[in-house]
Each structure stands twice: as C-alpha cells, then as structure tokens.
Write a protein that binds this DNA or RNA. Structure first.
Lengths: 179, 179
DNA sequence: CGCCAATATATCGGCTTGATATAGTATAAA
DNA sequence: TTTATACTATATCAAGCCGATATATTGGCG
C-alpha cells in the first residue's frame, strides 16, 4: 500500500493533520501492521491535494504551531475504495532480531542474552498495551484486525518464553573461533 | 539490516551466486523474516567486492548461463560479526491484507470473502511447507528461528479459522452508501 | 520445432526510510 | 528567572530499497 492510500485510509475515519496521521501508525490502530514516516506523508498529502482527493483547512494558533487539517473529498473516498479493491500484496515481515538470533553462534553470550530479553520484553509490553484498551462500538474490521495482531504477539511471547532456556543455554557452537 | 549484511549472512553459510542468494530470501530459511530483491543484491555484491569483503569466481557453462560465485573473505567475516553486534532495529510488519480487512465496510462481500480465503490458504500452505521439512543437525539459532516463524504462522491460521464466520457474516456496516 | 519454465545477471525510475532542520508551546526544575 | 526538556507541527534530503523489466541460455514437454 502506498503512502497516498494509507493517508486516505486515516482520513476516511476522520479529519487529521500530517502529524496526527503519523501518530496513527506510530501508536494508533495501524501500528502493528503498517508504517509510514513524515518523509512519505507530507509529499503524499501534497499530491492528494493537487489531485483534489483531499481538502486543506489552515488552523493557526490554538496552543500549538499552525496546523493543516485535511479532509477527504467524495472523489477521494471513491479512489480509496478503488485502491482497496485491488488484490493485496503479500505480507512482509522484517525482523533484524530474528536474523541476529539465526546467527546466534556468531554472537557472544551476553549480547545474545540482552537482545533476547529486550525483544521478549518489547512484545510482552505490546500484548499488555493492546489488552489494556478494549475497544467498543468499533466496526467489525477493526476488532478483527486488533485480534489478529494480538494473536500474533501472544504467539511470539509464548514461544520465546517456553524456549528461552533451551536456546540461550545451547552449546556455544563456535561459529569460527579463528580470525 | 542492509542488503550488504544480508548477503554476507548468506555467504558465511556457504558460497553462492546472486541468484542463489535471492532464493534464500524467496523460499529458503530467511523467507519468513527478511527480504531482498535483485535490485539490492547485485549492487551490494559489487560494493562488497570493492571493499574486499567477498571474492568472486567466474563459472561459465555447466548447464546454465555464466555464473558468478561469491565467497566471504576473513575481513568479510569480521565485518559481518560487527554488524550483528549492533542493536537490532524494531520488527516491522507490513500487511496490506490486514489494512484491507480493517476497512471491511468499504469492500463488497464477495471480494472480502475471496481476499480472506486466499490469505488464510496462503498461511496454511506456509505452515504445511515448514512442518514438512524437519531440519536436523543445524545450529540452534536456525532451529529456534524456524520454530518462531512456525509459531507465528500457526497463530494466524488458528485465529483466522476460528473467527472466519464471525467476521465475514458481520453486518454489512455500510461505510458510506452515498456517492 | 516451438513454447514455457527455470537459471542467471543486470539496470532503472519512483518511492520510502531515517535523519535532520526549524519553530512555537508547555511544564517543571535550577 | 532562566534553562532545559518534552511535545506539537511542518518540511526536506541523501541514500538506499522496491518492483518491474530487459536480456540470454539451457532443459523439458508435446
């Protein structure tokens, strides 16, 4: 999904500024399956404006720097729906921590230990945070996706808790002591 | 993890060509947590060669077009270990299918149905494929990461199987029938 | 013999990424 | 009071990545 579609997605749920859009992907409901940074959001909003798919309202002052609030136009809504109608691309997972654990033999014990526990702690926090806020009255799609994310995080936490000792106490392996 | 480090990772396990490196990320042991395309691999191999971290051997003929087989040098091995020593970046998941399901109200029933079942079928196949090959004699790290990937895929399959009817038969929702 | 699939290398435009710059506001410590 | 820190907010940029595409050879199938 390109940045333009992601921005439209946030905006069909309600008006927002670039900064607020970013937060949706950093901590909000999209945080666990999509990501976009400012470097993609601002150019995307500019293009969407040019194309007449969103409308801007300038809001200066009000206890914050000037703010540009964007709203989807009917044309934007139509384009968004068309984007969703296309077959989705395959999921992509990028885990540097997994890559690192794959090559456990190349790391010294302490570092591996630290990485493992940081990783596990991170996912544990994620699970707790998600369980904490129990959404009500939201459309079925949002509930479903939240549950999917939670199931995924819980699976990681379970696996890593159960296999921690076996993995960390495995023989040193000695990748290549030489060099 | 940048393309150079990913290539080094494959090469420390054994000599390979660019094409073979790609396959490691397409179907091989890295397929479920990393990805690199030719557009990153070939430039990376060129740079690694320049820097003396890998060595090339040209192998023409032999029942295939000419082939360049790369091998890590001792310097390359050292650099690889240093790369692993750096703190890993946060995991990143990009799921267009999840984004689509999040906005289920915007899709017509048949399309949503089709997307759902394709997605579920894809993960079911993944689980079966991974269960099929039971690796023996591989280092603990590889076993552990394979198990982690399997746990994740199984969680997705379970959740999607259990919640399928609830999700697909939920009220139409009517995103915005107007327009 | 033609056709398709697999092997193999390589490039390129467009987009994303991560870092950084800039600046106003708010809170609280020194 | 001044300083520092954090948050809100927009914006840009180089470096690198992504997906598509070009090119060419070998092997198998009907």
């Amino acid at each position: 999904m390109d940045a333009k579609t992601l921005c439209l997605g946030v905006l069909v749920m309600g008006d927002a500024s670039g900064y607020e859009i970013r937060k949706m992907f950093e901590e909000g409901p999209f945080a666990h399956f999509q990501d976009v940074g400012y470097g993609s959001i601002y150019p995307a909003l500019a293009k969407l404006s040019e194309e007449g798919l969103i409308a801007v309202t300038d809001t200066p002052g009000e206890g914050h720097p000037d703010k540009k609030v964007y709203a989807v136009t009917p044309a934007g809504r139509a384009v968004f729906r068309q984007s969703l109608a296309r077959a989705p691309m395959q999921d992509k997972i990028r885990s540097d921590a997994a890559f690192l654990m794959f090559f456990a033999e190349f790391l010294d014990r302490d570092h591996l230990h630290a990485v493992y526990d940081d990783y596990l702690a991170f996912y544990r926090t994620r699970v707790e945070t998600m369980q904490g806020l129990d959404p009500e009255g939201v459309p079925e799609g949002r509930l479903f996706v939240r549950g999917l994310g939670l199931a995924f995080y819980q699976a990681v936490v379970s696996y890593m808790t159960e296999n921690r000792d076996r993995f960390l106490n495995a023989g040193p392996g000695k990748a290549d002591a030489a060099e």
